[in-house]
Every structure is written in structure tokens, then in C-alpha cells.
Design a protein around this nucleic acid. Structure first.
Lengths: 261, 261
DNA sequence: AAATCAGGGTTGTATGATAACACGACAAGA
DNA sequence: TCTTGTCGTGTTATCATACAACCCTGATTT
């Protein structure tokens, strides 16, 4: 019984609504960097909520680097470049083009990471990869345990680069991709797929073990092409067409205005 | 006499301390996913603050996806995978190794992005790049305007991939790198450097314009090697000058404003 | 046995009050 | 005139309390 409950309860919290509202004002340019926000009291009355709610919203925006505040002065809009967090809008991932774009980004990271891992891996890294592969062999394809070990393998590869940011970024992107796949929920499973996928991973591991950077990235490329087709994306990688026509070129703001909603 | 007064220890907000404390408990495994947090009242008394402060901290953690809460039940630690934001600790960037790692990640992104841009760029993208280059030509090396156009060039390249996430990620990483460089603040400037840097950019643009993916990534690789040596990283042909310890002079103040929260 | 209801516990929100701080105005002293 | 100290106002930061909404459990009723 696959009860498919919708994941994000779009926060019933008032503070979430207030934060989104202010965020939108910033994203759409009605509040420019350096501008002073209305006082908490004013915001509270205009939104019709208590000052406490406004404070929670501001605390949130502050933690995201969107605004900064100082006791006795007020709250101000921070420079857009100062955003200390990178967020990916969950809603956007439901759109096919966004998903494809994110998948492409993941692929770019993975391929490079595989090559780097091949030149820097330690024995412990190799062992971690083999352990993850073992976990995949004993778990049914597509099960939670399988997915966990799948991600674990890729994380182990990323950690083999000895660069913590690689793993951090890759896991972040991969998780968004995975969520999106689960949300779509239309992948069919078969033992054949399990064997194929496992084989792709094994080839990656073999190349990394051998210290073959070129081979590792090639194997990873093949793996990603396979993964793409398994989730219903047009498989090719190098000659992939632009995910979205040249519309984006003039819309830099669209990229920056992250969670406008 | 430059008297160096350390900024008064204007401690971060209490809610920040509480949030960090809880965050640390989660990161270090003392609070595992699924665990229920103490009640707000309990947290308030143990931390010696009001419940309001605890609520602001929780609002922040909730927005980061680290915990979730439900009215009438309590607050619970979320799965690590559910983190909706990617953050880079500013303090960590002051360490030379972290900086080097982030620079490496940026390089990986840039090189791939350049190749992709060469195959997908539109006329508008090319124009944006040329405009940024013009801006660099007329601004003094290292000035704010120069840096702005420098970043603008790289962003234009990223947007030429027609994949918005490329720009989003690259800009995020680049901004962290830039902040870190400014914090170190001991790069010497010269007209020679300006010419060199400009030349590197021009070669990148030429390759992208020609649709030469290989040439574009090669040019970008050379540019990054040059940039690395210019900021004192052992990356290209330059002597390995040890990364200078961060002297928090001016930036600290600026960052303090943003991070206070 | 099942449905209903009461009670306590927890989070969500509102309200008022106080402390800490920034900033300008203004007067006192040189 | 210039400096300095003081004060008043406005804002954020924090505290304290109260109530509403909600979940869970267990007893009560049907």
C-alpha cells in the first residue's frame, strides 16, 4: 500500500508566510539592498500578526543572509550576493525542465568527481565503496536500503576526492534529484535493472581502484546515461539539447530570486 | 598609528547560540533523526533563556530543514537528507585548506561550464560576456567595479549553458571564494596582472564564441591556474606563497552584519 | 467493542513590559 | 567655535504570561 502523502505541508506557520512575503518583496525588487525594513511593530500590524511572528520570520531571513539587523537601528536588506545559503525550490523540481537541469548539474559533478577520486582515493575510500556495493547487492532494487547504499556509494566516491565540499554539494544535489524522482514515482523496477545498475557501479569502482581517472569518468558517464534513461530522461549526455531554449539568457533575476514562490 | 580595535564582542543573538547548540547536537549524533527534542519550555530553562528565543532558534532550524515540528506533538529531528539548504561556514573559509578545496570545486564547475557554454551559447549570451569584458577594461584592476564585471563575465558564461542551476551554484561558490580572498586582503595589484587576466578572459570568450568546447575548457583551466597563483595558491606556475592568516579588518565588520543571526 | 469525551501536555500565537542600543538634539564648558 | 556630556526618542532584543489549537491517552459512555 503506497499511500502517497504529499511531502511538504506548506508551512501553516504564520512566520513562514511572513518570511515568504518579505522574501518576495526583496526578490521582486520592491525592497532593494540597503533598504530599511519597516519596524517590527509596523510589519506586525500590516500583516495582522503579533510581533513575535514577525520576529521569527526575520530570524529566518537573517539566517539565510537575506537581511541583517542591529539592535536599536532596524533591519536592512542585505546584498544579494551575501546570501549564505543555497536553496533549491522544491516546487520547481516538479517541472520537467528543472529536473533535467538539475540532473545535468549532478552529472557534471559526478563525472569530474569520479576522475578526481581515481587519483586520490585511499584504501579506506575503496572499502567504503565496496561496502556500499555489497549493501546494494543484498537489497531489492529500488528499496529504501538500496537507495541508501546507492547514495552511499556516490558519497564515498565524492569523499575519495579528499575534498569535503565535493561530497557536500553532490549529496545536496543528489538528494534533490532523488526527491524529485520519488515524487514522480513512475519508475518501473526489474531485476534486469538491478543487474545493469550494479554493473555500472562496479565498473566505476574498478576504474577508481586502478587509479584510471579517464576510465572512471567514462564509467560514470555511462552510469549517468543509464540512470537518465531509467528515470525517463532522454539518455544522451554529450549532445544533449539545451534543456530550455534561450529564454533564460536575459533573465538573470529569475535565477537569483530563489524562493519567491 | 593604526590602532586596531577589535570589534566589541557584540555577541550574536541568543537565538543564534541556541540554534547552533541544537545544530551541534544533531551534527554530533547526540540527537538522531526521528528523535524528539525537549519541549520548548524545557529548552528555555536549560539554556536559561525565554521560550521566545527558543522559538526563534527552532524557526530557523525548521527553515533549514533540520527539524520539523507539529502543533500539539513536539519537534523532531529530520532526516539529514531533508536539509533544504546548503550552507558554507564562513569561519571555515579562513582556513587555507578549506579555501583551497572550495577553489577546486569552483574550478571543476567553471571548466565544465565553459565547455557546455561553448555548445549552447546564444547571441545574447555572447553580448553579455563582451559587455562584462568592456567593464573590466575600463575599471582599475581589483576595484569593486572590476570585481563586479569579473563575476558578471563568469555568470554570463554559466548562463550560456541555458541551465539556471549552473549559474546559481557557480555564483554561490564564487561569492564564497571572493569573500575569502577579500578577507585575506593581501593581494598585490599591478597593471600587468590586469592585462594578463583580461587576456585570459578574452581567450575564453573567443573559444566560446567559436563553439569550441575543448578550447573553452582549456582556456578556463589556464585562467583558473592564473587566478590561483594570483591569490597565492599553489596551482599554476607561481611560487607557493603560504596563505596568509586572515586579518579581520574591514570584512569582519561587514560579515558580522550579515552573519549576525 | 466502538465511539465519545475529558484531561493534560505541547506547540502556535497574542500581548505587554523591560533592557540594550543607536542616533540626533541640545545645553554646558573650554 | 569646538568639544563633551546628557537626554529623549525610536528600534531591536529579550522576557514573561496568557490563551488558542492541537495531539495523545485513557476513562466513560453507548
Amino acid at each position: 500500500m503506497t499511500l502517497k502523502l504529499d511531502k511538504v505541508n506548506r508551512g501553516p506557520h504564520l512566520s513562514t508566510l511572513v518570511a515568504s512575503s518579505i522574501s518576495r518583496e526583496i526578490a521582486q525588487g520592491r525592497l532593494k539592498p540597503g533598504d530599511q525594513l519597516p519596524t517590527e511593530q509596523a510589519l506586525a500590524t500590516t500583516f495582522g500578526v503579533s510581533r513575535n511572528v514577525v520576529r521569527e520570520a526575520i530570524a529566518r531571513l537573517r539566517s539565510e543572509g537575506r537581511i541583517w539587523s542591529q539592535q536599536g537601528r532596524g533591519a536592512f536588506v542585505a546584498d544579494a550576493a551575501n546570501a549564505t545559503v543555497l536553496t533549491i525550490d522544491y516546487e520547481a523540481l516538479q517541472r520537467a525542465d528543472s529536473f533535467r537541469n538539475l540532473f545535468e548539474l549532478r552529472g557534471m559533478l559526478e563525472v569530474q568527481i569520479a576522475a578526481l577520486a581515481a587519483t586520490r582515493r585511499s584504501d579506506a575510500d575503496i572499502e567504503a565503496m565496496e561496502q556500499a556495493l555489497d549493501g546494494m547487492r543484498t537489497a531489492p532494487y529500488g528499496s529504501v536500503a538500496w537507495l541508501k547504499n546507492d547514495l552511499g556509494f556516490h558519497r564515498a566516491v565524492a569523499e575519495a576526492t579528499q575534498n569535503p565540499y565535493m561530497g557536500q554539494f553532490l549529496v545536496f544535489v543528489s538528494e534533490r534529484v532523488r526527491e524529485s524522482i520519488l515524487a514522480a514515482g513512475n519508475q518501473q523496477k526489474s531485476d534486469d535493472m538491478a543487474r545493469t545498475t550494479l554493473g555500472e557501479h562496479e565498473r566505476i569502482l574498478a576504474a577508481i581502484k586502478a587509479g584510471d581517472a579517464k576510465g572512471a569518468s567514462a564509467a560514470m558517464t555511462r552510469h549517468l546515461a543509464g540512470a537518465a534513461s531509467r528515470v525517463g530522461l532522454p539518455g544522451g549526455e554529450a549532445s544533449a539539447k539545451p534543456a530550455s531554449p534561450a529564454r533564460h539568457s536575459r533573465l538573470r533575476k529569475a535565477v537569483r530570486g530563489q524562493a519567491a514562490g
